[in-house]
């Protein structure tokens, strides 16, 4: 067996190990992205509302 196959096999525990790490990376990335997109959305809403208030005043 070459060393990479051996590495991915992880002594037979590969499927458990790789899925736990991949799920963690996917879920954490998803959480960070969702949080960041919500922040962008709120920033956009604030600037839209402020622009509308500005137009009304003038």
């Amino acid at each position: 067996m070459d060393s990479w196959t051996e590495f991915f096999n992880m002594g037979g525990y590969g499927p458990y190990i790789w899925s736990s790490f991949l799920i963690a990376i996917a879920v954490m990335t998803g959480l960070a992205l969702q949080s960041w997109m919500d922040l962008k959305k709120q920033k956009r809403l604030v600037s839209e509302l402020e622009a509308r208030a500005e137009r009304k005043r003038s």
């Binding site: 949080s35 919500d38 922040l39 709120q42 920033k43 809403l45 604030v46 208030a53």
Partner: peptide, 20 residues
């Protein structure tokens, strides 16, 4: 911190909407 920033802005949006 990102979520707190978003939440502060969400409340600002709510206040602005009610004012308007």
């Amino acid at each position: 911190m990102v979520r707190m920033r978003a939440e502060i802005l969400r409340r600002k949006v709510r206040t602005l909407q009610m004012q308007q």
